[in-house]
Design a protein around this nucleic acid. Structure first.
Length: 306
DNA sequence: GATAGGTCGGCCCCGACATT
DNA sequence: AATGTCGGGGCCGACCTATC
């Protein structure tokens, strides 16, 4: 049967996935590796207040050898900024190195010096961020990936592009499309992407002999969630973040563990209705990540940075 | 100069825990 | 279900400071 031509909706009109998400377009497109389906979704606005580089300049911990005790002592002696230490007999040299990295925006080096991912957001603009979330047929990359969602913002306005493989034969095309998007992204943001999404994508790309040389900065929100909320929440799953911090609950969301099952039902029956909840789930995950990041940036820039 | 004490970071190991 | 990451605890060496 003609799965290649199968659309989730045959409807050309925009339709809503709740108040926050509106499907604005859906079409078949092709790239060098073949056809796949693209679903476009407009989201509500999200406000981000990324941290300032000034906060990095005040973080004495970035200097190798300065821990909490020394930082406190130095603060009491009147050293407020890294630049105040430039002439210091012991820390001057290291302070110079750190300052150089700060001015150069060398995020890799700053991360080695101990800057947190959140602090490093200072070097990025919200519109350069690409949020990513994938849906797969299993937990390990011997199984294919069939849906890759990418969210980005322009003037606060969000838009999601979902690359959908309508059968496993289209997997390579959606991977190629994703590799191209990621290669041009300044920063990738995910939830547990360090352990799951990124290794998974790279594994599948290797399998299909695609290049995997995207080296964008990657901010995993799970790590930040655990850092900030480990003791305040029962767990750090994205759904819990939504419920407890964003005051939202999903009505008829399918559990992640059933996604593979739904996709297989779709493959067996050719019934596109089984895909709807998966696309919706993916879009909600992406939008929740964005809202969580918005919350973090507002909360953490109000106060002292961790 | 010798010694003792403090601070920091790098290991290693292990369990918990997110993702579909 | 498979896997990668992370934090905590314990330990150790390097290096600095204070004291005698």
């Amino acid at each position: 049967m003609g799965l290649q031509k199968l659309f989730v909706t045959h409807n050309q009109e925009p339709y809503s996935l709740g108040v926050e998400l509106t499907v604005t377009g859906e079409r078949e497109i092709s790239n060098g590796e073949g056809l796949f389906e693209l679903v476009e979704i407009r989201t509500e606005q999200v406000e981000f207040t990324f941290p300032q580089i000034a906060a990095l300049r005040q973080d004495l911990h970035l200097i190798y050898g300065i821990g909490p005790t020394t930082a406190l002592k130095l603060a009491q002696e009147g050293y407020r900024e890294i630049s105040d230490l430039l002439k210091h007999p012991r820390w001057g040299r290291a302070a110079q190195d750190v300052l150089k990295a700060i001015e150069a925006g060398d995020v890799v080096r700053l991360a080695r010096y101990g800057a947190s991912d959140f602090q490093l957001l200072s070097y990025f603009q919200p519109q350069t961020v690409r949020f990513i979330d994938i849906e797969t047929v299993g937990l390990y990359y011997i199984h294919p990936v069939f849906l890759i969602g990418i969210l980005h913002f322009e003037n606060g306005q969000g838009s999601i592009r979902q690359f959908l493989a309508r059968d496993f034969g289209e997997e390579k095309a959606i991977l190629l499309e994703t590799a191209q998007v990621l290669a041009n992204a300044a920063i990738i943001i995910s939830y547990n992407g360090r352990s799951f999404d990124l290794p998974y994508l790279k594994g599948r790309m290797r399998y299909h002999q695609l290049t995997t040389d995207f080296d964008s900065w990657h901010f995993d929100l799970l790590r930040q969630a655990r850092k900030d909320y480990r003791h305040a929440l029962p767990n750090c799953r994205l759904l819990t973040i939504e419920k407890c911090l964003l005051n939202q609950e999903r009505d008829d969301d399918i559990p992640g563990a059933e996604i593979a099952h739904y996709y297989n039902l779709y493959l067996d029956s050719g019934e596109a209705g089984y895909l709807r909840p998966i696309l919706e789930h993916n879009a909600h995950d992406l939008f929740s990540m964005a809202k969580f990041l918005g919350l973090l940036t507002i909360k953490k820039t109000e106060k002292v940075i961790d």
